Simulated assay, not measured.
Amino acid sequence: MEYFGYLASIIIGLSLGLIGGGGSILTIPILVYLFKIDPKLATSYSLFIVGITALSGCFSHYRMGNLKIKSAMYFAVPSVFSILVIREVIILKIPNVLFTINNFEVTKNFLIMIIFAVLMMAASFSMIRKTNSNIESTGTNYLHLALIGSVVGIVTGFLGAGGGFLIIPALLFFANLPMKQAVGTSLLIIFINSSIGFVGDLYIGTPINYPFLFTISGMAFIGMIIGTQLSKKLDGDKLKPIFGWFILIMGIYIIIKEILFK
């Protein structure tokens, strides 16, 4: 299973490179089910893996002129604040066992995986349905960008997910960016969010297996290189529905496994 996990890690970067999101939604299931890592620790690992992979994609998109720094900053600053509050305050106060129903313990790890599965399903619907990425706008709505940035920060902080599936629509509709610029700018935001969250985890003493983390990140980096190159030739909008169906199936699998086969 571990060898399959290393190969699956390539898909993390491949997704980020092609459509600017979706990679983080795969990272947690790969770490938890293929590498048997505790879900809470997996959220920390996910922040590093997704963050460092997104950074590598930023350089390529910067050279292609796809980074809009101002929009990224309006989004990222409130997002970072939410991340720090969630990871350094709220998560630490959640007990390991929340409550029990007929001898079934609802634990923190169970809650993380169920919420993550629901998030995956919500993300899949946004990828599957067709949207018009060239909607006209009167200009950038920085207030809306900041508000959505706060929401994405909550998602990133609690689940270790970059939130690209939320970031890209926000950049399309509220920053009035074309699809390729939304993808590139999304990677910058994901890097900022993920790196801040991971540094916060280091500050509170989260144990990190660095050789393992660097290996997974290296595989994801390979996927990012492939995805970024393919993005020059392939239409990300056409790939999203395929990836969305894959994410939907994985989300359903997680719910079934967590509830019926615990």
Rank of each mutant, 00 (worst) to 15 (best):
F48C: 07
G65K: 13
V151F: 04
P211V: 11
G223Q: 00
I249V: 04
N132C: 11
I135K: 12
G21R: 06
L248S: 04
I90P: 04
I242P: 09
Y6C: 00
G17A: 03
T228S: 11
S82V: 03
F198G: 00
K68T: 11
L213A: 05
N141K: 14
Y33M: 01
T215V: 11
G197W: 00
M113T: 01
I28M: 05
T131D: 06
S231Y: 03
L119T: 14
M127N: 06
G157H: 02
V106A: 08
L7E: 12
S60L: 11
L202S: 04
I10H: 15
R87V: 02
L47K: 08
L7A: 11
I10W: 08
W245R: 08
I255P: 14
I69Y: 02
N209Q: 06
L98H: 15
K240I: 13
Y45D: 04
G22D: 12
F165T: 13
V118L: 12
F158K: 04
G153A: 00
T206N: 06
F214G: 13
F165N: 09
G160K: 07
K262C: 13
S133K: 07
I49N: 08
I242M: 07
A8M: 00
I90A: 05
Q229Y: 15
I259K: 06
S15Q: 06
K257W: 08
V85W: 00
G244H: 08
I204E: 00
S126F: 02
F99T: 01
L14P: 06
A117L: 06
S195G: 04
I242D: 08
N109M: 09
V183A: 07
M1K: 12
P241S: 02
S133T: 07
K93H: 13
F212K: 03
L239T: 14
G20E: 10
P95R: 11
L41G: 03
A72V: 02
M219T: 05
L14Y: 09
F59L: 01
I135Y: 07
I252Y: 12
A8Y: 04
M219I: 03
Y62F: 02
L187I: 15
G13C: 10
P211E: 09
V151Q: 07
K70A: 10
T53G: 00
I254E: 09
G65I: 14
M224S: 09
L41V: 14
H61L: 04
D38R: 11
R63L: 00
I128V: 15
G65P: 08
F48E: 08
V118S: 13
V85Q: 00
F174H: 01
V80G: 00
F214Y: 15
G160F: 05
N102R: 15
I226L: 04
I154D: 02
F4W: 02
D235Y: 14
P211F: 13
I148P: 01
F110P: 14
G20S: 11
F99K: 02
F191M: 08
G244D: 09
I204F: 01
K240C: 05
S133F: 05
G22M: 03
S231K: 10
I254Y: 10
I148K: 11
N134I: 12
S124A: 06
I101P: 11
I37T: 07
L213K: 03
G227L: 04
I12L: 09
S124H: 01
G149Q: 06
L187V: 14
F212S: 01
I28L: 14
S15P: 08
L159H: 00
K70R: 08
A123G: 05
F221C: 12
T100R: 07
